[in-house]
């Protein structure tokens, strides 16, 4: 096994150019599990941690190497909330937003936030740089639009983010648990609301009908919340697996979305 340890973005992109099929190692919290289980035996590994360019966080641009620990202390409430739910302190100190995107698990915890705020994923290869909308990047379970020779540089958030934002996640433990359902809601002052849910479909999903229902309303009545909950439950496409049943996930998605929206409404 060959390990490349580039120190800046140019070196990284040059390395990827000569090893386009290399396995990218960020925090290693997903990759090393696969390696330990012998699911994956990479020939060439490019380690990203020394690439300082990836660790920048500049207003609306969050570098791929930004860790959950930094997100937890960052300015965006929903991002901080989701970061707190990820793993143990050790995992949060090493796991990154770029890694979460690269793994593209349906249950990835940063993904509902990125989808709810309509973030773009910035990827680069030698001599090229692309910005993809989140839904053009996340193509399916553990499947992204990243091409050989490309690396995730970071995510670009829109210029203005709603301050009303909230994240919630269902798991069977009080912490350190993979999401059964996770959810992020953001709401503008004018009422425009976006909601995204994870672990209830092949990728993170938005539920447009539910968004539309509450987006035009300054005041959201209890009846409307009931309808909102129902629309979310109807729109998601969960599966049954060893973590939860399809029926539970569908129900819980509605309840969780409603409660997360309620946290974004004026009290």
């Amino acid at each position: 096994m060959q390990i490349e340890r580039p120190r800046d973005l140019d070196e990284l992109l040059a390395g990827l150019d000569s090893h386009p099929e290399a396995t990218l190692l960020a925090g290693g919290t997903d990759l090393m599990v696969d390696v330990n289980l012998s699911h994956h035996r990479p020939e060439t590994v490019v380690a990203l941690r020394r690439v300082d360019d990836l660790a920048t966080w500049d207003d609306g641009f969050i570098g791929a190497g930004v860790t959950y620990a930094r997100m937890e202390a960052g300015p965006h409430p929903a991002l901080a909330q989701l970061a707190r739910t990820v793993g143990s302190p050790q995992i949060r100190a090493t796991g990154t937003i770029g890694g979460n995107l690269g793994t593209a698990s349906p249950a990835g915890d940063t993904l509902p936030f990125l989808a709810a705020v309509d973030a773009e994923v910035v990827v680069a290869s030698r001599g090229d740089r692309r910005r993809l909308r989140w839904e053009d990047f996340l193509l399916g379970p553990k499947h992204t639009a990243l091409r050989p020779g490309e690396v995730i540089v970071g995510v670009q958030l829109p210029e203005r983010l709603p301050q009303r934002q909230a994240f919630a996640k269902i798991g069977v433990r009080q912490a350190m648990v993979i999401a059964t359902v996770n959810c992020c809601v953001v709401r503008d002052e004018d009422g425009k609301t976006r909601i995204a849910l994870g672990a209830v479909g092949p990728t993170v999903v938005r539920t447009p009908a539910a968004e539309e229902l509450v987006s035009s309303q300054q005041q959201v009545s209890a009846t409307m919340l009931d309808e909102f909950q129902r629309l979310v439950s109807d729109d998601v496409t969960p599966i049954t697996d060893h973590r939860a049943t399809e029926r539970y996930r569908r129900h819980a998605a509605g309840v969780l979305a409603r409660r997360t929206l309620e946290r974004c409404l004026p009290r």
Binding site: R84, T85, A168
Partner: peptide
Amino acid sequence: PLHLPGGTGLTTP
């Protein structure tokens, strides 16, 4: 949150 069901997941008022 740690005093509520769901803990850090902020699921439960």
